[in-house]
Design a protein around this nucleic acid. Structure first.
Lengths: 125, 125
DNA sequence: CAGCATCCTGCGTGATACTG
DNA sequence: CAGTATCACGCAGGATGCTG
């Protein structure tokens, strides 16, 4: 049955952004290409506290996942020392507004002080 | 330092919707209150295949989380047999458009057949 | 510099059984 | 009906160390 009954787009979306950093990486890349270590440095755990940064294994996986679904593109300059840049694809760019909407909503409803219990208050930045 | 350094809204959002069903529950509730079992029945694994439905433990937790962050409200009729309804709060409703945006994007970019490799193609049906 | 290989751990999720 | 109690498992994610 070619009858691929579509899954709820929301579920697909959930799968796509599964992982703690994918959204942030996309957002981080919205202003242009960045190198592996730049992304890594920009993804401090929350803000600048807990740990130094993400484990390379994790970042690597996120990056690959993002690339495999066509949101970002990997450009290897093939030089030494290595230089690799990641940038949003057209599809990735089309996703930025969605992230922006998320940010906007989160900014107004998640950071607001009117919350009864902000147990999920994340660390910072 | 009362300086509660705001976290990136995206991270807060990620935390908020952590869990496979939260977004879908919110979306499911956008049309009005629903009972526990209605929600449960509506949340078939993907569509109507794999498993019958969500484990009560899981649904219960998601519901509590959603309620604790003020997105939904629990109304217990205190009757017997038990009758409990869940409905979106004002805040929850304000979140619906965001989910709508996600759905829209996902519908256009995640279900589209123009994808090179849809390795993440959700099970669907 | 940009990764990969390994090990380890917490917790999110699933399945089943039980209760008010 | 609307949950809670338990048990178990897979996997995302963290920490190191190593390589081309």
């Amino acid at each position: 049955m070619a009858k691929r009954e579509r899954v709820c787009p929301v579920a697909a979306f959930q799968k796509m952004i599964s992982g703690k950093y994918k959204l942030r990486i996309v957002w981080d890349l919205k202003n242009g290409a960045r190198r592996y270590s730049e992304i890594r440095s920009g993804l401090l755990r929350g803000a600048a506290s807990s740990s130094p940064e993400i484990a390379p294994r994790v970042l690597s996986r996120e990056l690959k996942a993002l690339a495999s679904m066509g949101l970002i593109e990997r450009k290897d300059y093939g030089v030494v020392p290595p230089k690799v840049e990641y940038k949003l694809t057209r599809k990735g760019k089309s996703f930025v507004p969605v992230v922006a909407a998320i940010r906007k909503w989160g900014d107004r409803h998640l950071m607001a002080p009117d919350l009864p219990q902000t147990s999920f208050a994340v660390a910072a930045e």
